[in-house]
Computed example of a mutant assay.
Amino acid sequence: MTTTVAELTRKLVSIPSHEDEDKAGEFIAEWFRRETDATVEHTKAGVIARRGNELTAGNRDTLALVGHHDVVPPADSQQDGEAYVLEERDGRLYGRGSADMKGSLAAAMCALRDTDASCTVASFRGEEQGGVGVRNAIEDGFAPEYAVIGEGSTGYSADGVTDVAVAHKGRRASTVRARGQAAHASEPESGENAVYRAADALDVLRALVPPEATVLDHELRGSICVTGIEGGSAWNVVPESCEITIDERTVPGERCDIEAATANGAVEWEIDQDLPPMACDDDAFAQSVLDAAADAQPESSEPAFVTKPHATDAGWLAQEGTTCVVCGAAEPGEAHTENESVSLPVLDRCYRIYRSVIERVGVD
């Protein structure tokens, strides 16, 4: 009996994968081998199932549906011993990873099974750790011409509508460190106060204007936010060090000039994480996915091109020349929450969207 999207989602969500992704990866690989005629690779990057995509000029896959099977740690209510807790009510499946993003992954897996056209489905490890899996895959030559990333795009233009995201922000996390010279606080002039130097750097950071970008007529604006400051060792000691942590949401193109905060020479800047943004560079491909989304939804629904505030694996692929969009079942506010859930009817919709995209874009 053919496994449905809902059944496969339940199985995937039930497999713990916040610390060790091996069991989830093994299940996915074995499912592909059993249910499809795809060539399956299970490596340190994750699972890649390729059917017929062998390969276009330049040794590239034509089309890939991309997801990940790692999840963030569950809340106490989402775990019973080593098992994940699943609940189903009112047409929704509740559980860690249901929205982010095992539901959309299940839809992509079933879409590959039920079509004859060429396509690759990839489920990567370590997306929640900064795209570890997709970066390993890229190092091994994974660079499809086109990719649909199954992260959330439902409910952006209107409640319940599955849209197509043509851009998303990146995230650059960094630390500004100010150095000083310790001294007794009763004689502050005999030292150099690192907190004061950090305050000067903070003035520079607050004056920065985040850049903007336009992608397929949609505006995307970056942001910068100081999220922490720490310095000093005792109430009677002039502080010799002070750190400022910064969360920056980046857009394609320019970045905030954080380095300007280091102009006095006693301040250093270190980038701790840099997740790239994504911008679709092919309006025809984006339109084909939007058409597929429109065909899979009621006539009263009008899916639209939208942008996402969150970084995804699409950023790493776009950086390597893959034309990407994001289209998936998760709605804003579902991922990483104690009540994470996904709509089962929307998963069926995503299955139809992915199947249509394969038939429109995949090589017969």
Rank of each mutant, 00 (worst) to 15 (best):
H42F: 11
R10V: 14
G231T: 02
N59W: 01
L208S: 01
A234Y: 08
E151K: 01
E26M: 01
S223W: 01
L112G: 08
V363F: 07
G160L: 11
V357E: 13
L86A: 14
E54V: 02
S190N: 12
A49H: 06
A335W: 05
A261Q: 09
R34V: 11
C110D: 02
R177I: 14
W31A: 00
T162G: 03
P298Q: 02
C110A: 05
R249H: 10
Y156T: 01
A318P: 04
P252W: 07
N339A: 11
L65E: 07
E270M: 04
C119L: 12
A117N: 14
A266L: 12
N339W: 04
S118K: 11
I258E: 05
A75K: 08
D274Y: 10
S77W: 04
R135S: 11
G25R: 05
A45C: 07
P16N: 10
G155Y: 03
V267W: 12
D272S: 05
G191Q: 02
V71W: 14
G160P: 01
A173C: 09
R34F: 09
A330W: 08
R177P: 09
A199C: 03
D100L: 14
V195S: 13
A165Q: 10
G58I: 13
T62F: 04
E254V: 07
H310P: 03
G81T: 12
V121K: 04
D80E: 15
T307G: 06
T262M: 10
R113W: 15
G321E: 03
Q181V: 15
F142T: 08
H336M: 08
A234H: 09
K169F: 04
V204L: 02
P309A: 08
L344E: 05
P332T: 05
E248L: 06
E212R: 13
E192R: 15
P252Y: 09
R33Y: 01
A263K: 10
S153F: 04
R206K: 05
S233D: 10
W269G: 00
I271G: 02
E248M: 05
V238N: 05
V204K: 07
Y156A: 10
S118G: 15
M101I: 15
E145W: 02
P303A: 05
L275G: 01
P210A: 00
G222V: 10
A314L: 06
P16S: 03
A314W: 06
V161D: 13
S343P: 00
T245I: 04
K44D: 15
L55V: 13
I48G: 12
S300I: 07
D274F: 03
R34E: 12
A304F: 06
G160M: 04
A49E: 10
V251D: 07
G58L: 05
Y196S: 00
A38E: 04
V132K: 14
A147E: 03
Y351S: 10
I244W: 07
N236D: 02
A284S: 08
V361R: 01
H69Q: 11
A293N: 06
A194R: 12
L112F: 14
G81K: 13
T36Q: 00
A57E: 13
P211M: 13
V289Q: 08
G152E: 02
A266K: 15
R206T: 03
H310E: 09
D272N: 15
H42T: 00
D159A: 15
A198K: 10
Q297E: 09
